[in-house]
Structures are given as structure tokens and as C-alpha cells.
Design a protein around this nucleic acid. Structure first.
Lengths: 151, 151
DNA sequence: TTAATTGCAAACACTTTGCACGCTA
DNA sequence: TAGCGTGCAAAGTGTTTGCAATTAA
């Protein structure tokens, strides 16, 4: 496992002090399989006997976002933010409306579209966010989301 | 102006009782030029001397969402929801990072992509949400968002 | 040593809920 | 009149902030 040591340099390179909480949270996000909430980070660290305060979690996340080491997402109809390690790969998300699991899609169909839009609108386009919604194979198997079951 | 009378039938057709607050909010959203927050609705109605409680605004919005008469959005880095009249046109949004103004785009480049994705992932795709970010012509003129001014 | 980071508690902003009263169908 | 809709106050969530103590560089 070469997993655990990488991050310390990343912090230095971004001009951040190297603290235990920062590396812990950054490693946690790097190893997470999908975007997670501040509370999930907090609880998970507690389970691992890492003593940390929820406000420190938020402050750390904010710092890491500023330095673009992580990304923040808002999901429609969820009132809490989700955070994800920024591995600098342009991604989109497939959100299951049944189990709420978020899968990432690395293929992006929109490269050319941004240029068309710049020409049509006069905006300087800096990025985009695409989320696709549906039901995953497992939820379909369970019958979740099979049209409207009833009202 | 034929603007003001349409909505009463819409409520009936959705199986909702016809109340003043519901028609007022629905008309307000129908006539809004962009998605608005619950508080904006509340304040705007107060200015027009409509007496309403903020909890009624939220409850009404929830009801209208259930009946799909309106849509709810979450914008990244904003911690409040925005609501919009559902005119049943598939739309995307162009969000200005400078002035935060939201412009809608009625052209959708993703029709075919959803089918590709269904084949690749096994998901049953029910919809998608695309937001494009950038700087509007006016903000560019003012020099807002001209790369990084400094760090 | 010095400034940045943290914990704690308290404050905040947005949203939801319980209950009694009021109004639509 | 029966039951849904509303106002009010209070509680919930998720997030932020002030301040004193702690820690990294």
C-alpha cells in the first residue's frame, strides 16, 4: 500500500500547513468511492477514533476547496453538500433515484457544446455540471422506480 | 393581459383545492424570469401586501412540486433551493459566476447521450440536469472573472 | 515565536412540524 | 360540515463564527 503518504506534499505545494486533520480528511476523500457529506466524514473519523470537531471538518473542507484539492457538489433535492477528492478528471454523475447512490461517468459529451454556447450567448464559459438521473440495475430488479407504482 | 386567470384550472386539474395563496405563488413563478428562492417569493408577496406566512410558502411549494406544476433546483455553492414554473420545456441553465444571474438555454445537446448511457450502464435514465458556468457579457465588460485577478 | 489551526459553544440560515383555527368544496 | 389549508411558534438540520487554547513552521 502506497496509499497513505502521498498527501503531505500536496498540502505543502498548495501553501497549506501540514496538519493531521487535513491529511486525514484529504486521504479519506481520496479513498472514498463517491462524494460524501461533512457529517459522513465526521462520523467515519470518529469511528476510527480520530478526535475532531464538526466545525473543523467544515473549515478544513473550505480550505481544501479554496486550493482546489477537493470539489463541492449540491445535489437536487438534498439540502446538504457533498465533497469529493479532485483528481482533476472531468466527470459527470449518474444519480440513482432509488438508492441515492452516485456513480461517476468519465466520458463527457459536451466539449464542443461549450464553444457553440460561447458563440451564441457571449458568455465566457468556464465549466459545466451534468448530473443524469435514473434507476440503477439493482433498484430496477427490486421494482423500485417502475414507472409510478401508484400515487 | 390574459396573464392572470389561467392558473385556477391548473390547480383543479391536479386535484388541488383552489386557494388564493396557491394561485398567487403559481402566478408569481410563472411570471418570474428566472428561478427564485422561497424567501424571494415571501418578500415579494409581502411588498404587494399579500399576507402570507413563510411556512405556507414552503408548504405550497412542496405541494406544487408534488403535482409537478413547479420545479425545484439546487445550485452548487448556494445553500438554498430555487423554484421555477414548470412549463414542460426541457431546459438547461447558464449561471453567471459574477452576478449570479441564471439564464435558461432551451437547446439540449443530450438526447442521444442518454440512450448511449442506458446501454453502457444498465440504468433506466429518467432525466438529467445540466448547468453551464461562466461569465456573462456584462460581467466580462466590467472585468469580473478575467482569469484570476490575483490570488 | 508567531501566525495559522483547532475545539467548543453559540449563532445562523433555511426548512419543517404540531396544533388550533379558518376556509374550500 | 368534513377535511384540507393556514398562521404561528417552536424545533430541526446543515453550516458558520467568535474566542481562547494549541500547534506547525
Amino acid at each position: 500500500m502506497e496509499k497513505d503518504k502521498i498527501d503531505e506534499n500536496i498540502l505543502k505545494e498548495s501553501g497549506l500547513k501540514n496538519t493531521k486533520h487535513r491529511t486525514t480528511i484529504l486521504e479519506f476523500l481520496r479513498d472514498a468511492s463517491q462524494p460524501v457529506s461533512a457529517e459522513q466524514i465526521y462520523c467515519d473519523l470518529k469511528e476510527k477514533n480520530v478526535s475532531i470537531n464538526i466545525s473543523t471538518v467544515y473549515r478544513t473542507l473550505e480550505t481544501l476547496i479554496d486550493k482546489e484539492l477537493i470539489l463541492k457538489h449540491s445535489v437536487t433535492n438534498e439540502n446538504k453538500a457533498l465533497f469529493e477528492y479532485n483528481n482533476r478528471v472531468h466527470k459527470h454523475y449518474l444519480v440513482c433515484m432509488g438508492c441515492k447512490k452516485i456513480t461517476s461517468i468519465e466520458n463527457c459529451p459536451l466539449h464542443d457544446y461549450e464553444k457553440v454556447l460561447e458563440n451564441n450567448t457571449g458568455f465566457r464559459i468556464t465549466g459545466h455540471k451534468l448530473d443524469v438521473y435514473g434507476y440503477c440495475p439493482e433498484c430496477q430488479r427490486k421494482g423500485i422506480g417502475k414507472q409510478n407504482i401508484e400515487d
